[in-house]
Amino acid sequence: MDISRLIRRMPAVLLVLLISSAAVFAGPQAEGGSQDVLMQRIEDGKTIRIGFANEVPWAYPGDNQDPLGFVNQITLDILESMGYTNIEPVVTEWGGLIPGLKANRFDIITGGMYILPSRAENINFSEPIGVFGESFIVPAGNPEGIESYDDIRESGVTMVTGSGYSSVEHAKTVGIPDENVITVPGNSEILAAVRSGRAYAGAGTYFSSLYLAEESNGDVEVTDPRKNPDWTFNWAGIGFRKSDTEFLQAFNEALAEYMGSPEMMENVAEYGYTESQLPGDITTEEVVQRLE
């Protein structure tokens, strides 16, 4: 049978239906037969795009957008051990990290993100890369005596934190009224709000708070993270798309070999990461279950 002559004689509607059906069945093959987007990018010779915000010392851009910070260092070391060095940094605001990953604007979140159930619903996390406490920057001398989330609730002072930070959820948990919580894009805005008196306490990780205190030239000081309850301590992970399960499994295997190794501790020392931040034996699944 002459197929080309048959096609020319087909009614237009039937021809459209035939083409549409073929496209549906061809879909998976057109994507290389894999739902793992990152592995497909690598096979196509494309870069691995790491997404992070300006969060010193976790992950931040240096000259020419070079990826700096201990989470970027951990990620780059692991990727190199896996044989991947074609890396492209993508800098965005903190609140754009998860939306950007889901929209395929980058492939891995290296921003130093806490493993929270609400986030785990949207992305997959690597196994934990560290455990960290939260603290506040407050005016030098801390005249209001603010040391914890409970203190903020009871005193009625205004707290500022970053949009999408875990401290937003912690404030809700302890009953701090929404009108007493200001959210801003990131750390520099947190410092500006406390300096100007717009807010009394700036909530964030202990590492980030130390950095802001250093930047303030003595205008603010840092509270002791141990004054907050145990449930405010968080394990951080590296974020992946829900579809990238094959790559994540390989990444976790390399992470297990790397975590706590002499190479790691030497490479992250300049950013203030010490053995006290090592995550221990807890898994990401266990972290999520503890917080649910």
Rank of each mutant, 00 (worst) to 15 (best):
G175Q: 02
P139R: 06
I146L: 05
A120G: 12
A103E: 15
V157I: 15
R153P: 12
A171G: 04
D150I: 14
D178Q: 11
E147W: 00
A140L: 07
S155E: 11
I108S: 02
N187Y: 08
G186W: 06
G156C: 13
I182L: 15
A171N: 00
G164V: 05
I123N: 05
I98N: 09
T161A: 05
S148P: 06
M159A: 05
P177V: 07
V138M: 01
I115P: 02
E189Y: 14
G162H: 01
L191I: 14
G186V: 12
E179I: 12
E189P: 13
S155T: 15
N187M: 09
M113Y: 10
R119P: 03
N142G: 05
E134A: 10
G111Y: 02
S167Q: 07
E154C: 09
E127R: 05
S155N: 14
G141V: 11
A193Q: 01
S167T: 15
G141P: 10
S148N: 04
S118V: 13
T161K: 02
R195L: 06
V138T: 14
L191R: 08
F125S: 03
F136V: 11
G100C: 12
G156R: 14
V131M: 02
I98C: 04
V138A: 03
S167A: 11
S188T: 15
L191D: 10
E169L: 08
G133D: 08
E154K: 15
E147I: 08
P177C: 05
G130P: 07
F136C: 08
F132H: 06
A193T: 14
G100Q: 12
S166Y: 00
T158S: 08
S118N: 11
E127H: 05
G133R: 10
E127I: 05
Y114H: 04
N122A: 14
E134M: 13
V174S: 09
G130S: 02
G145S: 04
D151R: 00
S118F: 08
V181M: 02
V157K: 09
T183S: 10
R195T: 14
R153E: 03
E179R: 13
L191F: 14
G145Q: 00
I146N: 01
V181K: 04
S126Q: 08
S196D: 01
V138F: 10
E189Q: 14
T158N: 09
V160I: 13
N187A: 13
P99E: 06
A192I: 11
